[in-house]
Amino acid sequence: MSGAALPLRAGLPRLRPGLWLACAVLALVFAWAVAPSLFTARSPVEGIPGAQLLPPSWAHPLGTDGLGRDQLARVVYGARESLAGAFVAVAVGLLLGTGLGVLAGARGGWVDAAVMRLVDTLLAIPALLLSLSIIILLGFGSIKAAVAVGIVAVAQFARLSRAEVLRVRASDYVEAAFGSGGRFAAVLWRHVLPNSLTSVLALAALQFGSAILALSTLGFLGYGAPPPTPEWGLLIAEGRDFLARAWWLTASPGLVVVLVVLSAERIGRGIGGPSP
């Protein structure tokens, strides 16, 4: 309610403190992924002899793990692995899902029916089970895990983009575009796609968070990147063995995952899309 009449610049979502914080968190994590060496001088893979399982201190802000590796370095270097995976996953879901959804919404008829039944089938299988099955088919590896997570997201993207395309197709301006002699593809490209993809982009931001979570889950279960790659899910899994003696090994990557997922959600909502 508040601010409805304030002279805002139309079109830009109003930045609130929570949104700023979310952007800051993601910016930091992106910076980790791009240039990890700026944030830590230590190696993520080579341990320091005699420095196993040290609690957090000035030398090791997040402590060290069972092989004497600096936990901060592993979390920072892990960002690249996790973010790259999430990007691949969202890209796969976005491209495949939106393609299917737009096709179904724009063509209608039996194409719509066939695509949407396929989507229903995808939704009927539990997400984790589906991604595990796909990994078994594709083989192990971080990119393959990401593709599996992306395929699971196809259904949501397809549903949303189809609904949006249907909404836009029913509008007067699309009819007016056909009325002024527009061909199907031209109208789709000029009017339907630009107007229906805003909420799809919002969903992509939301899915980015879920993809990190899903990848971590797969990593934790051992279906993602192989050790000693510092992937967040894998870090949590490795820390599990020392849960009683070294809580920081699970807590630090866990907290980072939680923060990144929450931030992505917050930004997704900021774009103005629907909640999933």
């Binding site: 509008s171 007067d172 301006y173 007016a176 575009a177 000029r190 009017h191 630009p194 107007n195």
Partner: peptide
């Protein structure tokens, strides 16, 4: 309000 594409 409805017959013009809001993005054009």
């Amino acid at each position: 309000y409805a017959s013009l594409d809001p993005r054009q």
